[in-house]
Design a protein around this nucleic acid. Sequence first.
DNA 1: GTAAATATATGCCTGATTCGCAATAATCAT
DNA 2: ATGATTATTGCGAATCAGGCATATATTTAC
Lengths: 297, 297
Amino acid sequence: MKIDFDGIQAFVAIAELGGFSKAAESLHLTQTALTRRIQKLESYLGLKLLDRTTRYVELTAVGREFLPQARAMVLEVTRSIEGLKDMSRHSHGSFSLACVPTMAAHILPEFISKYAEACPGNRIRLLDGTSYEVRNAVLNNFAELGICIQGEHNAELAEIPLFDDRLMFFCRDSHPFSRKESVTWADMSQADLIVVSNMTATRVVMDYQLAKKGIRLSGAYEVQHHATAISLVAAGVGCAILPASTLEEGDRQGVRRIPLVGPVVKRKVVLTRRKKSSLSPAASAFFDLLKGSPLKV
Amino acid sequence: MKIDFDGIQAFVAIAELGGFSKAAESLHLTQTALTRRIQKLESYLGLKLLDRTTRYVELTAVGREFLPQARAMVLEVTRSIEGLKDMSRHSHGSFSLACVPTMAAHILPEFISKYAEACPGNRIRLLDGTSYEVRNAVLNNFAELGICIQGEHNAELAEIPLFDDRLMFFCRDSHPFSRKESVTWADMSQADLIVVSNMTATRVVMDYQLAKKGIRLSGAYEVQHHATAISLVAAGVGCAILPASTLEEGDRQGVRRIPLVGPVVKRKVVLTRRKKSSLSPAASAFFDLLKGSPLKV
DNA sequence: GTAAATATATGCCTGATTCGCAATAATCAT
DNA sequence: ATGATTATTGCGAATCAGGCATATATTTAC
């Protein structure tokens, strides 16, 4: 048998307001309907909850016992449902976003503040990790959205290109190349190179594209994180090849960023989501925000 | 808008069992009906709770968030409703019974054990007090049933006679009257009488009936409780006039109970309930038990 | 790659439910 | 008694929900 939630709601309203008519008004119904709902509920339960004459309404012993429970249930359910409806109406709620650290520092701050403005009160749980981890988080529903480097195609993931992140040459301003307009991959052989680990997506992309041109790169140093590489450059350890997004030219005293050509190598930064999963309103709002904004390098 | 509890229930069932078909079976519905329920719920909420292909069902982020709440709500409501239904089906539950102390000691033990046999697990909250208090407790819904002495008529109360409780003469077996078959009210003038307070219903009934015969009684001692009076008799303080139910002949060493005639005065013990209030199944079962059993003095 | 198997979705119909209006009945207050 | 107030009931209409048959989509197997 079906649970008669409306009946319970009617019972609570009548008990609280002390009459069918008042309760009917508060529920936007006629008192006729309420009479019927209570009758149905009582006959379903097999007991009376309200003693009523045509003139007066009073709780029965059972009704008195049941009222607190009923009240709590009605409150809980309506609150919960209203919360969900609100979630959909105003894109309320929280969601998880997985993101590679570089992008978390580079583009995210701007979008998070835009998002906070559009959807005040919403919280973003930020999971940072490697591209691989980001993609996995999205695939396993640990995060609804991910920002990472485009890698091998995965049928389960939808990827929306955000921007191309060009690889650049980073050196101290005391370096011989520091005044050049651009440097070539061929020039790299003369430099003490700091490169990121070949476990990173950036490195995989780079090696792949260079291999197509027959270029092989060997670095003197290998680090895990872009931020570390920059620090080493600043400290005078050597030069680095890193995505442009790592550091804007002029952002760090004594470090120069120089375009690297022949060929120009880019990694593609993408926004990714699981094809099968629908986005929550909160995530959807963020998704639209990111998708709708043109991004410059 | 009406709260769609069925939808929530469907959602929980599907989420727990991992599919529409299995859930449909557990809810004794077709899978078609479930599809419709979920569609209705989702469109009402304006968001998706389940990502499903024709082949697979998976929770969305929102669905995952909502599931624990939904599960708790469904559980709470069904448990509560089932409890009420059970209450009606098996006269389960507790109720309050108001009773005068004498009767609590005299007839109640028998009925309580009968009741416990018929309705195991049910609890009776026993409120003992004077007849006046008993009637008030019933009138104010502090107790569903009352056992008291019949007094002035009250339109709000229904009274079912249980038995006539005859006034008796109680004395020590050393008393001059102790061997008599009966004593008369006229004999009373020769006795050191212990009577109950004129605040008690027993006394009111007694005085009223004696007054009609032109008899006036004066007691040497006045006590509140029948039990006290008996103790005084046993201690040799004097003789008492008390309802037969106070003590069976032979129940107390050295105390004799002798019929009192000319006239025979009785108080009527009644079972009372509030006319307006319906009885809970638990109280109703007790009511029927009491009403259906012939009672001897 | 195609077919079979499996699970959800949809069209359509039917039966049941629910609602509201109007009229009725019952109670309380004057 | 009478009138005011409030719940109940009869009845018709609209809506809703359920079920059957079928379509559609996806996975698995050969």
